[in-house]
Design a protein around this nucleic acid. Sequence first.
RNA 1: GCCCCGGUGGUGGAACCGGUAGACACGCGGGACUUAAAAUCCCGUGGCCAGUGAUGGUCGUGCGGGUUCAAGUCCCGCCCGGGGUACCA
Length: 919
Amino acid sequence: MEYQFSEIEAKWQKAWEEQGTYKVTEDPSLPKFYVLDMFPYPSGAGLHVGHPLGYIASDIYARFKRLKGYNVLHPMGYDAFGLPAEQYAIQTGQHPSETTRKNAARYREQLDKIGFSFDWSREVRTCDPAYYRWTQWAFIQMFHSWYNKETDRAEPVAQLVALFEKQGNREVPAAHSCPVVFTAKEWKAMDEPQRMKILLDYRLAYLADTMVNWCPGLGTVLANDEVKDGVSVRGGHVVLQKQMKQWSLRISAYAQRLLDGLDQVEWTESLKDIQRHWIGRSEGAEVFFPVRGLKESMLIYTTRADTMFGVTFMVLAPESEWVQKVTSPEQKAAVQEYLEQVSHRNERERQAETRTMTGVFTGGYALNPFSGKEVPIWVSDYVLAGYGTGAIMAVPAHDSRDYVFAKTFGLPIVPLIEGCDVSTESLDAKEGIMMNSGFLNGKTVKEAIPIAIREVEARGIGRRKVNYRLRDAIFSRQRYWGEPFPVYYREGIPYTVEEKDLPVVLPEVDVYLPTEAGDPPLGRAKDWTYKGYPMELSTMPGFAGSSAYYFHYMDPGNPHRLVSEDAVRYWKSVDLYVGGTEHATGHLIYSRFWCKFLYDIGVVPEDEPFRKLINQGMIQGRSNFVYRVRGTNQFVSLHLKDQYDTTELHVDISLVQNDVLDIERFRAWSPDYADAEFILEDGKYVCGWAVEKMSKSMYNVVNPDEVVSRYGADTLRMYEMFLGPVEQSKPWDTSGIEGVHRFLKKFWNLFRDRSGAWCVEDVAPTEKELKILHRTMARIENNIEQFSMNTAVSSFMICVNELQELRCCKRQILEPLLVTLAPFAPHITEELWHRLGHTASIHQATFPVADVKYLVENEFAYPVSFNGKTRFTLTLGLDLDRDAVEQAVLTDANTLKYLDGKPVRKVVVVPGRIVNIVF
RNA sequence: GCCCCGGUGGUGGAACCGGUAGACACGCGGGACUUAAAAUCCCGUGGCCAGUGAUGGUCGUGCGGGUUCAAGUCCCGCCCGGGGUACCA
């Protein structure tokens, strides 16, 4: 019987589903292993062949771990809230939940055909109220928590209130944004709205006026990771800076823990670097500069306290409250005009103007506390309001931005490093010997920095300070298709909905657009109130639902908890997470933060969610081109095109095989080409090709369904792995798939004789056959553990080629081999397993253990080289020691020939590796 | 600009700790089977040079240096491609 993959695959997919083969429950008698894929957003376009790459790799790993005796949790679900469904709803009026449901069904259909071992009974969808109640619940917990910097964890706000009642807020070690200082007495004298306003500045989920990325094109606010190069990542719309009242998560309180935690996880260094950079820890000092005519001193942040003597001016961010305080009457009009000008600029313009500095003098002066000199205070948008204190001391000689500013406005530049030349550019490097710097003269920069900070502290004009670039996460979106906030307003003050009333279900609206008044779409909902009070109109961002979904998989559908104690104590955290690197500064940071918070409040036992992370590469498209002679309907073959003036056009890759165009089908492809003419080479039309993004517009999309129906899921799975390392990006080229398909046919044929009849025999295998088997088993196990799936596939090919040559069809060889192959090709192996007489699934078998006695060789073909050049090989026993090998080689006839009578200077022998003769 | 990661045949890619570069596969060329095609099987396949020939020589892992008996692998300096980040004081 031929290898009939379609029937085999359909049969076993059905059987696995019916028998619940991949259903998993907590089993304390077995070690656990949690393999997770980043869940997909179900888009309308469906899956292309690049999407399942990571899923296949993780599925192989999950199946392997099961065969090794682990209880494996391997779930899947959908990141189902998101902009595309909502934009589609705006255009068509179709409810986003409807589109999402359809798209998810399509995804499921496609995924099922590939034969994954997901436990679908644990499916989580972020848009399902039964799930998002836990997103809302977590928000409520954050609302009622504050960050205690002393205990370094989140604690209940009730405890904070107790502290306020006892001692006011001055000494409370909290991460906060509260501008006022009060005593216990003052706190007690406040009324409820006043207290609630204060507490908002301490909560981990808080409402505040903040500078946000406002995207008019999408009608919503965006988080920093959703903006790139001044435009929105989704849709590419212009983004403006705007002051708005928004919900935020105080993730900045966790900056140090997020940084430290990176040392505990097995992620690639480059991904950790991206996160480290995003967190952006810097060590420096905050220093007060007295201001002429004011009692109050201005606070600045610097990492270069050593350069204090070189400060020749100060710069304020346009948004700084100090601008109004220091501006002189004469400069008021100019400053106003500048602020006006700056406010109209969007992020892109602000960034594009790196070269031309803008700014204005405020008319105010600050006093350099070290040199005693007065320096002018300027305003410029090169200083950011959100970092440090929104004010800087400018040292043009040693900071390139200050340098450009000084040159632009003719401000003095005082060099502080001996022998440096600042006539054309600043010297930013932290090296050299200090000069012009009073008590720091003669010191190196590295010595001077701590000395200067110590001096600042000794004089009581500032203190050592660590800053982070990481900002609090803006958590409101002025959109419809997201989790509603469990928040209502009483007298303008936000309160959370009682937990017993969760979930707060997303209400229906007539259209998915903002209201006339400019409120978000939820402003259109009828009776959008709680206990008679108005509800919050924003919804949560995309990352809300994806920050803890991996916990709910452990205990899906639990109506009482995100995850039960028993379940989370068993599954703990994700052992292996597979997904794209594009989530480095979004999902992967937010999830870590969310997990640490849940850890702080005692809901989960570990504070890092993803122990090991593998980033799968992208599968790129391989496009084909035809060359049309300009102004004609004539097409010229690739290698002749240089003789003509041509236009390169994408051609659908389904019309091309091995870069040769199917002319008839090309003519039928579009009416424009119906009467096309062709200039051929060797009777063929050869197409050009290029590696590009896989996309419809390039006509290079390959759909997994098509591959499955032509070659089967087992072939698709193995070919995706065979393409190359999982982590690497590489182009998809369907022509290569034949080799993998051929391999599976050969493998199938090992079980049959020449006539096609079943021929597996119970005969003792030979030493040689056992060696082939055990070597393969050992390699595969090693390859899977290293996540080197491509070399695993090669190892199988080599094994099958060798067994085929030996015409081996012995049960004792084929049976263990089947189990070894099962993670890669689950269907064909299941079929053959049952034909061998088994009744239970092969996926519940045990992975065979390689016996070392079959792995050791007793002979080795030594490559013998002369002065590093390999000339011949000499097979010798591996039991020979260094001297014996040397003797054997030196007396060999071949050696004498290559030496040609010259004296040997040195012989290098590495037993079991190489012999090198130097002469 | 700064920080990562890459660069190996016509193509995708192998090569453990420095030890026979190009495994495995595609493609291509040749052959067998066939009326023919598909499928299958066998042989060859990095470049150049020499030889009728089994073969021999030589160059070769982006470029230029270096360390070493030996370098795709380690070190220094560049070039190119991809990703991250960017007035973060």
